[in-house]
């Protein structure tokens, strides 16, 4: 069963230097609060896996927490690239291991299912020519298919809409690769927008993300996914996603941003207090629109 811990304590207890982490969530429910706390606690030599490194890894790379990134799309959709990631790759500061989306989620599927590989029919490209995918022959016929190895993070970190008092996690909307990423790891730590009564959530069983027995700890962190979003609670902060591009191109501006918004804040409440006036209210308001 999951323990309820302050987010700082969850990171202190479960995230160690050199660990392989997967901060899950595809555009939606990205655990930024965890990313920021890992930066504050000064973790080093991490391997960071994510289909889409997104701003969360750009920020973590700016704080030099990682040596290696495993990914499939390192862009800022609709805006451009990830400037810090790009500098770190071009300078050789981080090593990369790169896949297609399908290959990466297939690796998670293998990890989650406890299988030694997962078959994918995607054609060969220069990624798979550089790191060849073995082929296996079907024992039920002559067909050959390429396979990818399991991805098994040490710790997967997720952000969910809510938990009940027992630590069962609930989330809905765009779930991306969250379930596979969580189930591929032995240790799952979660942050949530709110804690609700188990009685009120029993009827929401179709929205169960993970049962409590697959989760080590749950931390309450309202706005824990900002500047990404939590469907129905707050919208994606597209202004911040757009502004990050210029900010992160300038290493000293990036440094300043980290100092002010991450090192200069003790927790999520302190972080949100620094956001431009009216921003949170606008994101909350936008999330109420039905379509």
């Amino acid at each position: 069963m999951a323990d309820f811990l302050p987010l700082q304590d969850a990171v202190a207890r479960y995230v160690r230097d050199g660990d392989h982490l997967y901060l899950a969530g595809f555009t939606h429910l990205i655990p930024f609060a965890f990313g920021h706390e890992i930066i504050r606690q000064g973790r080093r030599h991490l391997t960071l896996s994510r289909a889409t490194p997104d701003l969360v890894y750009d920020q973590m790379l700016a704080a030099h927490v990682a040596d290696r990134v495993v990914f499939s799309y390192a862009g800022n959709p609709g805006v451009g690239n990830l400037p810090v990631f790009r500098r770190a790759v071009e300078s050789g500061e981080v090593e990369i291991e790169e896949y297609t989306h399908f290959e990466l989620v297939a690796r998670l599927a293998a990890g989650a299912a406890g299988l030694p590989f997962w078959p994918v029919r995607s054609l060969e490209n220069d990624l798979s020519r550089r790191r060849p995918r073995p082929h296996v022959r079907s024992p039920f016929g002559d067909e050959e298919v390429a396979v990818v190895p399991p991805l098994r993070p040490d710790v997967t970190l997720v952000h969910a809409h809510c938990a009940d008092e027992d630590g069962n996690l609930y989330a809905w909307g765009l779930l991306g690769e969250i379930k596979e990423a969580a189930l591929a790891a032995d240790v799952v730590i979660a942050s949530v927008e709110e804690v609700r009564s188990a009685a009120s959530l029993r009827a929401e069983r179709d929205h169960l993300l993970l049962p409590s027995f697959r989760v080590q700890s749950v931390s309450l962190a309202p706005w824990g996914a900002h500047p990404s979003y939590v469907l129905g609670r707050y919208d994606r902060d597209t202004t911040f996603y757009t502004e990050w591009d210029a900010l992160a191109r300038d290493p000293s501006a990036t440094e300043e941003w980290l100092k002010r918004f991450v090192f200069g804040t003790a927790d999520r409440a302190a972080y949100t207090a620094l956001l431009p006036k009216g921003r949170l209210a606008a994101l909350k308001e936008a999330a109420q629109h039905a379509g």
Binding site: S72, G75, N81, L82, F85, E90, Y99, R121, S122, N125
Partner: peptide, 14 residues
């Protein structure tokens, strides 16, 4: 360094 494949290689395959 650009964004990379994402799903592009898979989409082009299928």
């Amino acid at each position: 360094r650009l964004a990379g494949s994402g799903g592009a290689a898979d989409i082009a395959s299928f």
